[in-house]
């Protein structure tokens, strides 16, 4: 391999906390790797598992969902639903042949620009180490 592997990551960020947290990383000029593509959603609880599976099916190397910290949800309890839903999704992804490490759920508040950049950096590094997706996965 001559060229270093650059993972492609799809990120679903809740509008109120994590999207604003990513904005905060920007305003604070905290740099991180350019591998993430952000899709804005109102709430992490809006993220239908089909969107995650579809991302993997298309070829994403990793999927990130980030929302408000538990207890801080703009809609009171959306992130609790998200948390439970994704806890159930993870084994299903593994069943499909997608390593659990390729799917990450993080809580990032609007003031946590630094945390956002750390999440993207560490996830990118982790996926780089994992290497390209194995062929033969169901999606």
């Amino acid at each position: 391999m001559g060229v270093e592997f650059e993972p492609r990551i799809v990120g679903f960020l809740c509008n109120w906390c994590s999207y604003a947290g990513a904005d905060m990383a920007g305003t604070s000029r905290i740099s991180y790797p350019p591998n993430l593509r952000v899709i804005r959603v109102p709430c992490s609880g809006r993220v239908d598992p089909i969107l995650i599976v579809k991302s993997f099916q298309m070829g994403a190397d990793g999927v990130l969902v980030a929302g408000c910290h538990p207890g801080d949800c703009h809609y009171a309890e959306g992130n609790y639903y998200a948390r439970r839903r994704f806890a159930m999704l993870r084994p299903f992804l593994e069943y499909l042949g997608i390593e659990g490490d390729r799917f990450r759920v993080e809580w990032v508040s609007a003031s946590e620009g630094r945390k956002f950049s750390e999440v993207v950096s560490s996830f990118t590094n982790q996926l780089t180490e994992l290497g390209p997706r194995a062929t033969g996965a169901a999606v």
């Binding site: 899709i39 804005r40 109102p42 089909i50 969107l51 579809k54 991302s55 298309m58």
Partner: peptide
């Protein structure tokens, strides 16, 4: 504003 079709279109656009 955040329909299923719209979010899927965003995913698909990447590939």
């Amino acid at each position: 504003g955040f329909t299923q079709e719209q979010l899927l279109a965003e995913v698909l656009a990447l590939w």
